[in-house]
Design a protein around this nucleic acid. Structure first.
Ligand SMILES: [Mn+2]
Ligand SMILES: [Mn+2]
Ligand SMILES: [Zn+2]
Ligand SMILES: [Zn+2]
Lengths: 158, 158
DNA sequence: AGGAAATTGAAATTCATTTTCAATTAGACA
DNA sequence: TGTCTAATTGAAAATGAATTTCAATTTCCT
């Protein structure tokens, strides 16, 4: 049984590590470290899961009124390009971001009532996907898999 | 090996059958049959695959200059609600429609170079998805699974 | 410190989707 | 077949998230 739940909150260690990675990425690309980027990245890593640029912006605005939405938006794009965040679009068609490391891969269960998102990983499914691709002479480089329905809580107290 | 390709073109039989189903749906809901709806539905069923409202509209415009985009758009929504079409949003974030019947279910392989879309069905994967959901006490009612990569043609002449 | 290049944030733009509204049409019923 | 009401149509406007623009500011290399 390879399926498993994932992640509670980003550990401090992971955060520092990721910030280091970002710094390398910036330097490598001739980009600059700024107070704004730092703040946005910190908040993002602490918040953790599946946030929209708008949500993150609102959260940040509470503490730092001088950081604009555009900067939050651009920083998330940057994190994505540097491989530190994944961009996700679920059924509501909003672009969400989540911290991600290179080795990490997972898919999602999405509750249609409360909106909660559960992550899972299933190697058997992944293998079968590869197999399907092979049958069609298709080379898969990524995939998207989402299950929509009702989470434990929501199906119980219906 | 349960995986398989699908569908060439909608048979005339299937088209007539679907048009009948739509008529029932309309009557049942107190809606009206119109020349426009008829034309849009015919063109849609003949075109077949994964079209956007815009694409279908342009195609229809060639023959019938008096049919507006809005009507095409609304007819596709209607087909969706009546269960005769599926709405799909792939990575390009455009809403596409494809003819679909109740029993039918399939997922997609999408070529990142030429954009071709291949359909597949894999019961083993579907069973495992159900299993994953169960493990989390989640009741899945639908899912989305797309594999992105390079199709046979595109990976060959790279 | 000087200066080129990157960044910022407000505002404007884009673009698919959805809604509005006045004119037209379908179809139920007499 | 004519009447009437509700549904439909299509052009235009509105929406709203995502993206771009641009002038002012900041970073950081020399
Ligand atoms: Mn996730
Ligand atoms: Mn399909
Ligand atoms: Zn729930
Ligand atoms: Zn291809």
């Amino acid at each position: 049984m390879k399926t498993s739940g994932r992640r509670t909150t980003e550990g401090i260690k992971g955060i520092k590590q990721k910030k280091e990675k970002l710094k390398s990425f910036l330097k490598e690309k001739g980009l600059k470290s700024t107070r704004q980027r730092d703040l946005v990245v910190s908040e993002f890593l602490e918040m953790g899961e599946h946030v929209t640029a708008e949500e993150l912006y609102k959260e940040i605005s509470k503490k730092y009124s001088d950081i604009g939405f555009t900067t939050v938006y651009r920083t998330l794009k940057l994190l994505n390009k540097s491989g530190l965040a994944a961009e996700r679009v679920f059924a509501d068609n909003l672009t969400r971001y989540e911290p991600l490391s290179a080795e990490d891969h997972h898919d999602h269960l999405i509750c249609m009532k409360c909106g909660s998102i559960t992550e899972f990983q299933d190697l058997r499914i992944e293998r079968l996907q590869e197999r399907v691709a092979d049958e069609f002479g298709f080379v898969a480089v990524s995939h998207k898999m989402e299950l929509y329905g009702y989470c434990k809580k929501c199906k119980d107290n219906a």
